[in-house]
């Protein structure tokens, strides 16, 4: 089954091939923004906390 055929079966009639890819691009954009933002926040928070822990445990030279 081809993609235009699948899209044609969705609501939107003859315009479904334009409507659903537009929604798909929007979902992809939101998914990327959310995932990248959360991963970035988690990673830097962990690194900062690890550095703070290291600083507290290591003796000053």
């Amino acid at each position: 089954m081809s993609l235009p055929l699948i899209l044609g079966a969705l609501p939107g009639g003859k315009y479904a091939v334009y409507i659903w890819p537009a929604y798909g691009v929007t979902v992809l954009g939101f998914a990327w923004m959310t995932a990248d933002t959360l991963v970035r926040a988690w990673r830097w928070r962990r690194k900062a906390q690890a550095q703070e822990a290291m600083r507290q445990t290591s003796p000053q030279s």
Partner: peptide
């Protein structure tokens, strides 16, 4: 959340 991540990043780099 991204601004918070940037604050954490600078903190990590500075430490």
């Amino acid at each position: 959340v991204r601004t918070r991540a940037e604050v954490w990043r600078r903190r990590a780099v500075s430490l």
